[in-house]
């Protein structure tokens, strides 16, 4: 349907929103005790956007990210991801969505400890049904692109935290997802390394048109994004361009 000559921005516009959240509510239940965390979140994110979510600790940022990542289900509300109604998907389809559409980057990197870096990066491809040899080849290419080409055979604990996060980003990118979700990706890193990682995200967004959603506490980190969503006690209190926001 989409021709290769069509400009990316126009193609994205034709595709409709990447994420459409309508009145998303989430409560945690502890026995009979209900703890409401999200009180009706309405957010729409388009292809190619770079969005930062900020808010105080406990405001529900991670809860929202988990729902967006199809790791958790909302108590109420509708979530349309890339044109598909998430609540109607089966377990297997959700797994495929996580595999193909979303790339996760975590605060604690979440690399598998005893696997060489190249295998860590290749893992999502294996779940996508790619052969081991091919998956390793593609993983090596991704690691080279993030500047880790010489560390393919190393284990995660043999490289620095910033390098580990770059491996995690390579892993998130390896299946060519439509969206990167990063929950406090710089939370465990120093300032210099943080900006390195954020520059990487910026490049991905600007050069490849990758849609990126990050959660962060730090204004310096949030600044790299083009749009800000501010959460307070489960309500969206700001949603607009980064430039207009009061960080």
């Amino acid at each position: 349907m989409m021709s290769a000559v069509m400009p990316k921005a126009r193609a994205d516009a034709l595709r409709g929103p990447l994420i459409a959240l309508t009145d998303i509510r989430k409560s945690y239940f502890n026995g009979d005790l209900e703890t409401p965390v999200l009180h009706g979140v309405n957010v729409t994110i388009h292809h190619g956007e770079f969005v930062a979510i900020m808010g105080q600790s406990g405001s529900g940022k991670s809860t929202l990210m988990n729902i967006l990542g199809c790791l958790d289900t909302p108590t109420k509300g509708s979530y349309v991801l890339n044109g598909r109604e998430v609540e109607k998907l089966s377990d297997n389809e959700l797994a495929s969505v996580r595999n193909e559409t979303i790339g996760f980057v975590f605060q604690g990197f979440n690399l598998l400890k005893r696997m060489p870096l190249v295998d860590n990066v290749a893992l999502p491809l294996l779940y996508a049904g790619v052969s081991m040899a091919e998956a390793r080849k593609r993983a090596a290419v991704k690691l080279q692109q993030t500047g880790l080409g010489e560390f393919l055979k190393r284990l995660p604990n043999q490289i620095s935290g910033g390098q580990q996060q770059r491996v995690a980003i390579s892993r998130a990118l390896v299946c060519e997802p439509a969206l990167i979700l990063a929950d406090e990706p710089t939370g465990n890193l120093d300032t210099a390394t943080s900006s390195e990682i954020m520059n990487l995200f910026t490049r991905l967004n600007e050069e490849q048109g990758m849609s990126i959603l990050i959660v962060t506490h730090e204004p310096d980190v949030a600044k790299y994004a083009k749009r800000l969503v501010r959460l307070k006690d489960g309500y969206v209190t700001y949603d607009g361009p980064m430039a207009d926001a009061h960080l």
């Binding site: 797994a95 996580r98 999502p124 779940y127």
Partner: peptide
């Protein structure tokens, strides 16, 4: 959990 986030199905 990590494997599931990366796309492992229950069957996997």
């Amino acid at each position: 959990g990590i494997r599931m986030a990366l796309g492992a199905k229950r069957r996997d």
